[in-house]
Nucleic acid binder design. Structure first.
Lengths: 280, 280
DNA sequence: TTGCTCCTCACGTCACGTGAGGTGGC
DNA sequence: TTGCTCCTCACGTCACGTGAGGTGGC
């Protein structure tokens, strides 16, 4: 047996506000059992209570209404559970980022970072295995992990060894517009016609030339979430010397997730483009 | 020495997007060092980098811009740190609620709750110590804790003993509009002119009469975050019997935070107003 | 002169909340 | 008949993102 309820009763029974219930109707997340065609009054059914309870908990978990609609409309329990599980994974990653932000904030308020030296360096052109994609800062870590595995697999497939640490190119718009085409690469050889380029299996990995560059370099020690501190220090040093030029920023991953599980051991070189000193 | 930077350079150095920087300027969270009066070009100073880094981390912690402005403008480190600490407290509570939602969701998907019996009961009027305030569901737990301590203190002060479990009245609008005047009370005696009412110290606590009521009662066992499941079951039972009437819903806290640290041991009676059976 | 960087509106997003103004049902 | 409940716009909130359309500086 089921019984119809007006929106007020249904609200008290589910602890969802009347405004929220009307909104869930509008967007199709929870449609009333019947609607009076003349007055527009919504009537809910007691059998809709469990769905409302699920919605309330998913909203407490910050799941967007679009996804909630998908969860409720899932054809089977397996699909539904995997939708929920992947949301919980996202929340878990968010929590880790929150913890990193707390640590980073403490460190920041505790005082300025220990000064790391800036070095100007000439990087020669290399031939490299690369993966390229349009990415946002939020999606970059996951993308980088995937891309690195693709590169490592292609390297093994082609029976080659890396000629240096993996690196990445960051165009200005990646930071300024939070969206840009990143290039992750593993150098394989000095650039030049003498290099033999083995064919690659079908994969996102491609051969590319990473151009030479004159850069100011600063070593970032620690978690990647705090790399902005090194960007700040390095950018300041470059600006004060008035030697900056256009061009992508580079990072080289001397020690990264591929080498250790402890982010505090990470070592990243940040490279800012500067005037060629060769001309000086 | 400090140096001026255009918005693009400052964006790359701080990993704040250009759009975000313009917004922070608009709302006064981070005002450029100088603004060209003719072109409107913003110029930032290298000395503003640390503030930008703090802003980025506070935003990662979901702190609203208004509060960030207050943190940055705090007159001393003590004020600033306490603003941050109270925000971290809020986040901590939020995290606990998230964990509760995950557990609640699992329980919900695992199947229906074990059926608890519904009992119809006549509650006599009582004289009680009360605290009354307009509260939202989000603020209710903290309010309830405070209010309970005020009541307990007043009870001890007046050298009285409780004549029953503490309870609360919830008007319909508290659920329907997520805002309403709650009344937390501790019964002291049967209502009547014979009762001697001791004076109360200056505090939010007042003497009130809690009216009699005819209610359907269901026992909620477990965490208060899941009490909506009992509301759903009880409301369904009342609706199917078509015996519901207007009036505030009540809860009685048989076992609560005052008695145990384990929320699973909580026992709450939820009371839904119904027709008087005395007339039947 | 040509891109490039920067600028200012105006509007969109997401999940509702906040009134305003009005109507059916007991 | 009077409250009460419910209804539908229209607009606000928050922290930006997304174009559109335009201008200064090298």
């Amino acid at each position: 047996m089921t019984t119809l309820l007006n929106i007020g009763d249904f609200s008290r029974m589910t602890h969802l506000s009347v405004k929220a219930l009307r909104h869930y109707h509008d967007v199709g997340v929870l449609v009333p059992a019947t609607i009076d065609p003349f007055t527009g009054y919504r009537s809910y059914d007691t059998s809709q209570v469990p769905a409302a309870q699920v919605i309330r908990r998913l909203r407490d978990l910050n799941m967007p209404l679009d996804q909630i609609r998908a969860v409720l409309g899932a054809p089977d329990a397996g699909t539904r559970n995997s939708e929920i599980a992947s949301h919980l994974d996202r929340m878990e990653r968010q929590l880790q980022q929150t913890e990193a932000a707390v640590l980073g904030l403490r460190a920041l308020l505790a005082g300025p970072a220990s000064r790391t030296a800036v070095e100007v360096r000439t990087i020669p052109a290399v031939t490299a295995l690369t993966v390229r994609d349009v990415v946002t800062p939020a999606g970059a870590p996951a993308w980088g992990t995937d891309a690195y595995h693709s590169l490592a697999a292609a390297l093994a497939e082609a029976e080659l060894t890396a000629a240096g640490s993996p690196g990445a190119l960051f165009p200005a718009e990646f930071f300024e517009a939070e969206r840009g085409e990143l290039t992750l690469f593993i150098p394989v050889a000095q650039a030049g016609p003498a290099v033999q380029l083995p064919g690659l299996p079908a994969s996102p990995v491609q051969w590319s030339n990473i151009p030479a560059a004159e850069v100011a370099v600063m070593l970032h020690e620690g978690a990647p979430d705090d790399v902005d501190r090194t960007y700040g220090a390095l950018g300041t040093a470059v600006a004060e010397r008035a030697i900056g030029v256009d061009g992508p920023i580079r990072e080289y991953y001397l020690v990264s997730f591929a080498d250790t599980d402890d982010e505090r051991e990470y070592r990243t070189e940040v490279c800012w483009p500067v005037f060629s000193t060769a001309a000086a």
